[in-house]
Design a protein around this nucleic acid. Structure first.
Length: 274
DNA sequence: TGGGCTGTTGCAAG
DNA sequence: ACTTGCAACAGCCC
């Protein structure tokens, strides 16, 4: 579920509420979610620490702490981070880790338990391979459409697989890859080398467009996504192709098709995309 | 009922 | 070196 827009929606909410709050206690109900610490080491490192800024790169969240260690979180498919002002608030279903804070309570919930948490140094490289190897964040202001187009056209995979590879561009997942390709008029199975410079630049813009629209709408809740306050996002209503197979294209009326590319269910309009 | 699907990604295998 | 396929997990929907 959570791709860049959903993670950003959560980040913004947590960044409003966590900084300045001290961790009073940590309850780890499912230790295997901790990827580089035992529950004991995890608690020892975090207890008494004070939250600083909440940052994001791609689909990763960094919950900054004032001390030497910070908390890195990846929500994978069904992870959720929810903060409640009332420490006695009812926690979301499938809560796996609970942080009691000097102000409120932070809960990590996860149905499928594929999410991951790490302790990382507050400064310098994290030592987490997937995080350190990320390409530039898709919303990084230093990125240009020209630079993206150059990299894309040098790729050897399908254009969809290129978008999903976090080493190329961090933050795009299955929903927004299909949405951006639809708006750019490009079939997802097209080889990168067969994408023109103009099309590639257009794709860069549509990636940002679908991201910005979704963030403004609170993210896409297709199944499980909840924002940092536990509410659903409103962006599902804006989708053109994801989850719409068999339904008429919102632009031309042709039935949206479903296929498999790069191992992922892939939706596209056979008339609008070529 | 149960098999196949699901928003991610690291690894193995080609 | 690069790409694809599957496993990790649990719930939902035909």
């Amino acid at each position: 579920m959570p791709e860049l827009p959903e993670v950003e929606v959560v980040r913004r909410y947590l960044d409003e509420h966590l900084p300045g709050s001290r961790i009073e206690s940590v309850d780890v109900k499912l230790p295997r979610l901790l990827k580089n610490a035992s529950p004991e080491a995890f608690k020892t490192a975090l207890k008494g620490q004070v939250f600083a800024a909440v940052r994001r790169k791609g689909k990763y969240l960094v919950l900054g702490l004032d001390g030497p260690k910070s908390l890195l979180v990846h929500l994978r498919m069904t992870g959720r981070l929810v903060w409640k002002a009332d420490p006695g608030a009812r926690l979301p279903p499938y809560t796996r880790i609970v942080f009691q804070l000097s102000k409120g309570v932070l809960a990590y919930g996860d149905v499928r338990t594929l999410g991951e948490l790490w302790l990382i140094p507050s400064q310098g490289l994290s030592g987490v391979p997937g995080f350190d190897a990320l390409g530039p964040d898709a919303l990084d202001p230093k990125l240009t459409a020209e630079g993206f187009a150059r990299a894309l056209r040098a790729g050897r995979s399908s254009v969809k697989a290129f978008l999903l590879n976090q080493r190329n561009l961090a933050g795009v997942g299955n929903i927004y890859a299909d949405e951006a390709l639809f708006l750019a008029g490009i079939r997802p199975e097209r080889p990168c080398a067969a994408v023109s410079a103009q099309e590639a630049e257009s794709l860069f813009k549509t990636v940002r467009q679908v991201f910005e629209t979704s963030i403004e709408s609170g993210g896409t809740t297709f199944r499980d996504f909840l924002d940092g306050s536990g509410r659903e996002g409103g962006n599902a209503a804006n989708l053109y192709v994801y989850g719409r197979e068999g339904k008429p294209c919102r632009v031309c009326g042709t039935a949206i098709e479903l296929t498999h590319i790069a191992g992922r269910g892939t939706r596209f309009c056979p008339k609008c995309q070529s």
